[in-house]
């Protein structure tokens, strides 16, 4: 699973430029489904026949990054956030610019000798630069405005169970769905459609459009959520690395589905915690539940540290627990049919 997750995280999928991640995810998905297709917005859909009511399984393909807005003398590109970027983390960040070709760049860090006060502040959104080592004309030619930019940090194992990589949000969800489909092979289960949706980080357009055409009876959404970490107390983050899958409870989620998932986890000895939200879930579940004449949704979340950074960190056992619980739910639905 670690290698699959590293491969998925290595593919580019900055919002609006999900092609590479979509192609790789579709390759992994194809042998596990009856048919795989790509919808008009670029989301990947895989269907597998079964017994009973149709269930949608969803995770998003895209990742946060930057978008090029122009070039400056000295061959620097100007950039803006694409999705919710933490500007405190950008100094000295290596990036890949996806222009007319892919090339290396680095976000300059000013030196502490010069700007002692600046070093206490996040980079202002208006001052995001990428050093390309090119002339201005070359930089403009190779990276026209609108080119996407991703963090270039490689995936790395941290100890036995943890991994760190950019884009674990939400390639970990993709990975959990692929693992779930593996678990369903040879089992009697409900008919499923797997949706790897584009454009979650900018508001959920991909999931909304794809769910409209599917009209599922229920949807299970897999995303990441906040895990306790240094400086992040339990009051802000209900998840725990290695603590298992988080089952979401929220007004926008179907209470019966959430409760059934918890009961199944207890019954099957799958590690889980409850994640309680007071309103929306801020995931694609919010969009899917209101498509068509309405879709009851549940949300399973994988605990993640350092969300929206180049060092997102999770525990592989939690990805496995997520896949196990998804599979148990879909098998149960198939058995009841």
């Amino acid at each position: 699973m670690r290698q699959m997750l590293f491969d998925l995280c290595g593919a580019t999928g900055v919002t609006g430029l999900e092609r590479e991640a979509a192609r790789l995810a579709a390759e992994y998905l194809a042998p596990l489904c009856d048919a795989v297709r790509v919808d008009p917005l670029g989301s990947v859909l895989g269907s597998k026949a079964g017994e009973g009511a149709h269930i949608l399984l969803e995770a998003h393909l895209d990742q946060i990054g930057l978008v090029v807005t122009g070039a400056e003398d000295g061959g620097f590109l100007r950039a803006a956030p694409c999705g919710g970027v933490d500007r405190r983390l950008l100094c000295g960040q290596e990036v890949t610019v996806h222009g007319t070709e892919d090339f290396f760049g680095v976000i300059p860090a000013s030196a502490p000798h010069l700007a002692e006060k600046d070093s206490e502040k996040a980079l202002p959104a208006t001052a995001l630069l990428i050093d390309t080592g090119l002339t201005r004309a070359e930089a403009e030619r190779k990276a026209p405005a609108g080119s996407r930019v991703r963090f270039r940090t490689p995936p790395v194992a941290l100890g036995e169970h943890r991994v760190t990589a950019p884009a674990l949000d939400d390639r970990a969800g993709i990975c959990a769905l692929l693992r779930c489909m593996e678990l369903l092979q040879g089992q009697r289960h409900a008919p499923v459609t797997v949706l790897f949706a584009v454009q979650e980080e900018t508001g959920g357009a991909g999931a909304q459009a794809a769910a409209y055409g599917l009209q599922p009876a229920q949807a299970l959404v897999v995303d990441v959520s906040f895990a306790q970490a240094p400086g992040v107390p339990a009051t802000l983050a209900q998840g725990k690395l290695g603590g298992g899958v988080m089952v979401g409870f929220a007004p926008v989620l179907d209470q019966g589905m959430s409760e059934r998932l918890c009961a199944l986890a207890e019954q099957s000895d799958i590690a889980f915690t409850r994640e309680i939200m007071g309103g929306r879930s801020y995931t694609d579940a919010d969009k899917i539940q209101t498509t068509g004449s309405g879709v009851p949704c549940a949300l399973l979340s994988i605990p993640l540290r350092n969300m929206h950074s180049a060092v997102e960190t999770l525990d592989l056992r939690d990805v496995e627990a997520t896949a196990q619980l998804l599979a148990a739910y879909i098998i149960e639905k198939g058995a009841a049919a």
Partner: peptide, 17 residues
């Protein structure tokens, strides 16, 4: 890795400091 409190959980000045 050296991580930080996620950007979603920051309040007020925390985003800039």
């Amino acid at each position: 890795v050296i991580g930080l409190k996620p950007v979603h959980l920051l309040e007020g000045d925390e985003k800039e400091n």
